[in-house]
């Protein structure tokens, strides 16, 4: 059962990693992705970013994505934390952490989770530019392509 949280407050990465393994000794590796607010968007400096979400559906979508990861890889733990509200460059925005007995499952499931989160979880970013103005971020084709590579993970095994 994954730990899924949407919150405004900062999270404590070290505390989350400690909680993920919780003293168990069968974990051989942890995959970690920490998303951070970058100070430019398309080469244009930004001063802040505001994350909006759909309370209820967002948590459900994250839980469904985590459940999918748990069916694909032998995970011993999974944590998804996504922040909302106004964040400034340098702040952590999303934490994805997966624990497994071996590194391949931990790393692959972590990559899968952030790729699917970016295209399947209802969050929307609005960037404030240093030279004034603000704009909603448009979805990127690269993110769709990154998510699509996980669509048929078992094909090799089935052949």
């Amino acid at each position: 059962m994954a730990r899924v949280i949407v919150q405004q407050a900062p999270f404590d990465t070290a505390a989350e990693l400690a909680r993920l393994t919780g003293g168990r000794t069968d974990v051989g590796g942890i995959g970690l992705f920490l998303g951070v607010v970058r100070d430019t968007a398309g080469g244009r400096p930004i001063t802040a970013m505001t994350l909006e979400h759909y309370p209820g559906m967002t948590e459900r979508a994250l839980s469904a994505i985590a459940a999918e990861a748990e069916t694909r890889w032998p995970l011993l733990g999974c944590t998804l934390i996504h922040r909302v509200g106004r964040l400034v460059p340098g702040e952590a925005i999303v934490l994805v952490a997966t624990a497994s007995a071996h590194r391949a499952a931990a790393l692959d499931s972590c990559a899968f989770l952030i790729d699917w989160l970016k295209t399947k979880a209802p969050f929307w970013k609005r960037e404030e530019f240093r030279d004034g103005g603000a704009a909603w971020v448009a979805a990127r084709a690269e993110d769709d392509a990154a998510a699509a590579r996980w669509l048929a993970p078992r094909r090799a095994a089935a052949e």
Binding site: F123, W124, K125, A139, R140
Partner: peptide, 10 residues
């Protein structure tokens, strides 16, 4: 029923 743009989280 909710309406929104393509998602951009992460």
């Amino acid at each position: 029923v909710a309406f929104f743009p393509p998602v951009t989280g992460g």
